[in-house]
Simulated scan of single mutants.
Amino acid sequence: RALNKLREFVEFTGEVENVSIHRLLVLDEKHLAIRLVPRHLYRLWRMAKEEGKDLDVGIAIGVHPAIMLAAASSPPFGVSEYRIANELLDKKLRLVQCKSVDAYVPSEAELVLEGRISHKKEVLEGPLADITGTYDVQRMQPVVEIVNISHRENYIYQALLPGGPEHRLLMGLPREVAIYEAVSRVVPNIKAVNLSEGGCGWLHAIISIEKQTEGDAKNAILAAFVAHGSLKHVIVVDADIDVYDLKSVEWALATRFQADEDLIMIRNIHGSTLDPSANQESGLTTKLGIDATKPLSKPQEGFHRAHIPLTPKAKRIIKLLKRKGTI
């Protein structure tokens, strides 16, 4: 059956609308299991559950990247991610109302599954791979009953590969922004934030700052943990260190870090349940912060890389080799 009520995006009118990305386990032709992390959709489901009602959802597959980014941005509860997507699309987002459920989906979606998240039925979900590239633990999760399917002719099924670059980008990019904003409130000058590839784009953050006083790096570490609750390890470096060059970051660790003074360890704190080394039932983990910035109490020139001076002859040879494309 076709979707109806094509409309231009309008201002949010007061009802809580949430747009987010979730993994779905196919149970049979009409039922899915949905992973609900305790965030906005989980909150809406709990509200419906308390009223003894199922929660209507529209599952849109194959949408514009701006909608994906907006859905991954996690704005405050009550702010519709569609509004964010509309701004990213220069106010050209068009939505359609689902035929069988009370939900709106992007008009240009390739495939739409209309369903209801049961307030009663739960099943064992998983094991499924996630952003770490490892299998997440199995949990009891709600069941989605599919009541209608609509699609374009010759539609394209778009899927995220678990732990792939697109997965890490969508999850990590909004958190980098959140970390940047949080750290900028406690440190005068922040240069860059990188949720590193080796940290799965989720568990490890490298932050560069212009250090003004002792303690700036530790304040940055604590602010980062608050901004992104799933962070496990944070490294703070000086502005002369490229946060995307891991050899440079390791050099800072080797030459500017002392474990007895520059290490912060926080035990038994909630982290990411996707980390297989953590308690994946309770979410408790140990977090580590590393201050790899130069101590201001020592002469700063002692922490600079040495440069070999070039003679005029050496400069001419290098210039010649560059001209020939040798180097």
Rank of each mutant, 00 (worst) to 15 (best):
N194Y: 08
L284S: 02
P165F: 01
R323S: 10
D216F: 02
K99S: 08
A85W: 00
K120F: 05
T311N: 03
D28S: 04
R46K: 11
E261N: 08
Y135H: 13
E181S: 09
E176K: 12
R323A: 04
L25F: 14
P295V: 04
E214C: 14
Q97N: 06
I207H: 04
V234C: 09
A178P: 05
R175P: 09
A314R: 13
I84S: 00
K92Y: 01
H22L: 02
I34S: 00
S73I: 09
K232L: 10
V26H: 14
A71T: 03
K218I: 15
A220M: 07
P188D: 00
E122R: 15
I308S: 05
Q138D: 09
A159E: 10
M140K: 15
V19L: 01
L27R: 10
A205C: 03
I190W: 04
D240W: 00
M68P: 09
K91Y: 02
L3A: 01
G58P: 07
G14E: 00
Y180A: 07
D130Q: 12
P76S: 00
D136P: 07
H307Q: 15
R94Q: 13
N86L: 01
G78D: 03
V186N: 04
N189Y: 06
N18V: 15
I146M: 08
H233T: 11
Q138Y: 10
L173R: 14
V187C: 06
G58D: 01
K218Q: 15
A314V: 15
E261A: 09
G126Y: 08
K247F: 14
Y135G: 12
Q141Y: 03
I59D: 01
G283E: 07
V96H: 00
E166W: 15
E122Y: 13
Y135F: 14
I156N: 10
T326N: 12
A178W: 04
A306D: 11
L88D: 01
Q97D: 08
A178K: 09
R316S: 12
F9P: 01
M68D: 13
V177S: 06
M171D: 09
A224H: 12
L88A: 06
V112L: 00
T255M: 06
A254M: 11
K319V: 13
